[in-house]
Structure formats: structure tokens, C-alpha cells
């Protein structure tokens, strides 16, 4: 069986909790970023690009590339690799800039 990073460092995280991705419940661990929780649940893309509508997820994982933008609890353009998951967080797939409602 593949070893996980938490096994490698012998982490003893607190009890897991639930967050949702487009309404579907997934499990996250305390201290995990939203991107890590999504990856662990097998979700690799949670945004489509503005121009071509292509799928995007985490790329650099360290807050530099802005590829991992997601709408978190209604707020668009959060970097999923930096935002820690919290119980009950609602992640929604972000279409483009995630601000379509402001367009005139």
C-alpha cells in the first residue's frame, strides 16, 4: 500500500470532519488545506478558465500560481492551497472569474 505523507511524519491528526464540494460531502482533516482535502477525495479540478473554460486545480500548492482558485462559502477566488478546511465549508466549482453576477 502507498504510504501517505501523514504516515511518513507519524502525524496524529484530530478527528476528521465534513466539507462539501458542489453539495457532495467529503472528509477533511484538521490542518488540511482545502486543496489537500479535495485531492484526498480524488477531486483534481474545481475551476474552469475564463477564456477557454478548461479545467484547473492545484498546480504549485504554495500560493504562487493562482491556478487553484475556488469559491469558498460563497466567496470567489480563494486560493484552495492556502485556505485551511473548516467543518462545514462549502466549496463550489468556480466558472471563470466567479463574479458573473457583477457583469453589466
Amino acid at each position: 500500500m502507498a504510504r501517505t505523507p501523514s504516515e511518513l511524519v507519524r502525524a496524529e491528526p484530530g478527528p476528521p470532519f465534513e466539507i462539501t464540494v458542489d453539495g457532495r460531502a467529503i472528509t477533511a482533516l484538521p490542518g488540511q488545506s482545502i486543496a489537500a482535502a479535495l485531492w484526498c477525495a480524488g477531486v483534481l479540478a474545481w475551476r474552469s478558465t475564463r477564456g477557454g473554460g478548461r479545467p484547473r486545480g492545484a498546480f504549485c500548492g504554495i500560493g504562487q500560481c493562482y491556478d487553484c482558485l475556488a469559491t469558498v462559502n460563497g466567496e470567489p477566488n480563494r486560493r484552495a492551497c492556502l485556505v485551511p478546511a473548516r467543518p462545514g465549508d462549502a466549496i463550489t466549482t468556480q466558472e471563470g472569474h466567479g463574479r458573473a453576477g457583477l457583469g453589466v
Binding site: R50, N77, G96, H97, R99, A100, L102, G103, V104
Partner: peptide, 9 residues
């Protein structure tokens, strides 16, 4: 600002 739809014409 972050990218937005057309908010200023």
C-alpha cells in the same frame, strides 16, 4: 483588481 466581468464600461 482580480479579474472581473465587465463592471466598468
Amino acid at each position: 483588481t482580480e479579474p472581473l466581468p465587465r463592471v466598468v464600461r
